[in-house]
Design a binder for these strands. Structure first.
Length: 306
RNA sequence: CUACCUUGAGUU
């Protein structure tokens, strides 16, 4: 019973949605943890309707279930629905406010995010991180830095948010300064540092970080690939792509942007799953090479979103 | 701080 739950939670948490659902169906008896983790996984994978219908079919909805649903609407860009959940849920926790702040920030409503932040009586580190990220991602890196400097408690996530803010701003030196001042480097912070160099076209330094990393995953490999791809180093990009342990939509799309002609098409066709970004990459490959008829055809076949 | 939810990295 409890071990079934562990299996469901583990699959759900690692993005293995199908396996999570399968394990959920096989469980002898369902519990809150299992329900919530599957609904959360549905929300994270863009299956908002499925998440909602599963939520609606729950026998009893706990506080965490409402939090999960709020986050699902937020992640899928449904701010109004997220607010509706927030307004109507029977009780709230710090995570509830954190999730609502995140929804506001994601919609660019920084002032409202800040207002909610100020009104929170129970703040935890996550609360601070949501606010920090809201500033860092909305062109207010300086404000983020000030907030960071005033924080009593920080962890590797706090540092990484600031580092990434500098990267987005196009300040690789500030990002590097932050990187070297932090005590703990993990996979994510190293990858963020790679991204800062990659965004500045500094391939050599991107690779330097990559080579020194104790662990790598598909994200760090893709960042390295992108560094080569965007600077026109086609052979290097191909070499990286060939060496990485596995491919996903993001890495394949990155490889597409470095290629030309038929290679782009065959990368696209070999993909297991395609998202809108991949379709756009195919479209712009044709458009940029002047194959407007092919571009039109792709545009017509593209799945449209609502 | 029993657990499930909320916060950091890659592609157009």
């Amino acid at each position: 019973e409890s071990s079934w739950t562990d299996v469901v939670v583990a699959y759900a948490g690692s993005g293995h949605l199908q396996k999570a659902k399968a394990a959920f169906r096989l469980m002898p008896r369902w519990n809150d943890r299992a329900w919530n983790s599957v609904i959360a996984a549905l929300g994270s994978s863009g299956s908002l309707a499925a998440a909602k219908s599963m939520f609606d079919s729950m026998p009893k909805r706990t506080l965490i279930a409402f939090n999960v649903m709020l986050a699902a609407f937020s992640r899928n860009g449904q701010l109004l629905e997220a607010e509706r959940v927030f307004d109507r849920m029977p009780c709230r926790s710090t995570s509830t406010s954190n999730a609502m702040m995140g929804a506001l920030a994601a919609a660019g409503r920084i002032d409202e995010c800040k207002a909610l932040f100020d009104s929170c009586s129970d703040k935890d580190l996550v609360t601070l991180h949501v606010m920090l990220r809201a500033y860092a991602h909305s062109g207010h890196v300086q404000r983020a830095k000030e907030m960071f400097d005033s924080m009593e408690h920080r962890n590797v996530i706090s540092w990484t948010i600031v580092l990434h803010g500098f990267a987005e701003q196009g300040s690789p030196e500030d990002a590097a300064g932050t990187f070297h001042r932090m005590a703990v480097h993990d996979l994510t912070s190293c990858t963020a540092m790679m991204g800062a160099f990659a965004a500045a076209g500094r391939v050599k330094e991107t690779k330097g970080i990559f080579d020194a990393m104790p662990q790598r995953n598909v994200v760090s490999w893709t960042t390295l690939l992108h560094a080569a791809a965007e600077t026109g180093m086609l052979q290097d990009a191909k070499q990286v792509f060939g060496k990485m342990p596995h491919w996903d939509v993001t890495s394949t799309t990155s490889m597409m942007t470095a290629c030309r002609g038929d290679e782009v098409r065959s990368l696209f066709e070999d993909m297991q799953q395609r998202d809108l970004v991949a379709w756009n990459a195919l479209l712009s490959a044709y458009a940029q090479s002047g194959h407007m008829n092919m571009a039109d055809e792709v545009a017509a076949r593209m799945p449209k979103h609502d």
